[in-house]
Design a protein around this nucleic acid. Structure first.
Length: 289
DNA sequence: AAGCGTCACAACCGCGTCTTC
DNA sequence: CGAAGACGCGGTTGTGACGCT
């Protein structure tokens, strides 16, 4: 039925990328810009399938990616957005421009899910119920907050005190350097895909508050495909957020595909309605020291 | 010091969606 | 309009690092 997976072709290499391969890939993208992944293996001579090249770029080599431990704020954002959007990692990642969907997904699966589950178990056997009138999102928030309170604060503290690079391998550092090499190019290049990277690079230099983060998000929505704000076509990631919001009931009548992006709902919800909770999340490690 | 178990994360796989012809 | 190709997303796996015994 389906076509053969591209990576099953004879001669296609699998497994970890080498620094040499990364350099080849980065050099090629530096010259041609991201996209047209099909032609990348052909034109570079890389023995990798197009998919693998794209993933390597988007998840690892792309400039502006923040690696290392998630901050409590980011954790809070992820928990809220996951509760709201479900496992729409790409959509969630678009609100955390420095993080990739893969990164967030991994972090959720290895840390947050476990943390919530652990608390839920403890909750069932020992603790009182969450607020009676809590909706799904609040329920999650409550769990998360309580988890931090009773069980998770140690973890968070640990993460706060760990150096972001503490677990980085030597090669991870080398790819980071490759990424940094691109920064100049990304700033100067007129290529449409650079907008988000410029913003995230900027964010690397300055601590941004929520507003800046969402400005960043706004910019990120015009990335890669060169979609301008005035373009009628709705970017794919918009659509995923729209459908997620619609299905979760967050989107109301005022939302339609011709109106401002749906992130304004989330923005509003996160910044206003739940701002206190997010802040609370951020403060918990300090509170419960 | 060696063996074993666990954790974290990079990478792969399969499938759905979009685009092009 | 349908088929085929290209791309993107979410789930899963493989493996190296680390900690414990």
């Amino acid at each position: 039925m389906g076509r053969p997976p591209c990576c099953d072709k004879i001669g296609i290499k699998k497994g970890p990328w080498t620094p040499e391969e990364d350099i080849v890939l980065v050099s090629y993208i530096q010259e041609h810009g991201p996209g047209n992944w099909r032609s990348v293996p052909t034109n570079t001579g890389l023995m990798r399938c197009s998919k693998s090249c794209r993933l390597r770029w988007t998840n690892y080599l792309r400039p502006g990616i923040k690696r290392g431990n998630f901050t409590p704020h980011e954790e809070g954002m992820i928990v809220h957005l996951q509760a709201l959007l479900g496992n729409k990692w790409a959509a969630i990642a678009s609100y955390l421009p420095q993080r990739t969907d893969n990164d967030i997904k991994n972090y959720w699966n290895t840390h947050l899910k476990k943390k919530l589950k652990k608390f839920q178990t403890g909750l069932d056997s020992h603790l009182s119920s969450p607020p009676e009138d809590s909706n799904t999102c609040d329920h999650f928030s409550w769990n998360f907050i309580s988890d931090n309170n009773k069980q998770g604060s140690k973890l968070l503290l640990q993460q706060n005190h760990n150096s972001p690079n503490s677990s980085s391998s030597l090669y991870a550092s080398s790819t980071e350097n490759i990424s940094r090499l691109l920064e100049g190019w990304m700033r100067s290049s007129p290529h449409p895909s650079t907008k988000v990277d410029e913003m995230t690079l900027h964010e690397n230099k300055h601590n941004q508050d929520d507003q800046d983060l969402f400005k960043c998000r706004e910019t990120s929505l015009v990335k890669d495909e060169g979609i301008s704000n005035s373009t009628k076509t709705i970017p794919r990631e918009y659509k995923s957020v729209i459908s997620a919001c619609e299905s979760s009931g967050v989107a109301e009548k005022t939302m339609n595909t011709n109106t401002p992006p749906p992130f304004t709902y989330l923005e509003k919800w996160l910044l206003e309605e739940n701002a206190g909770q997010v802040e609370e999340l951020m403060e918990l490690p300090m509170i419960f020291t």
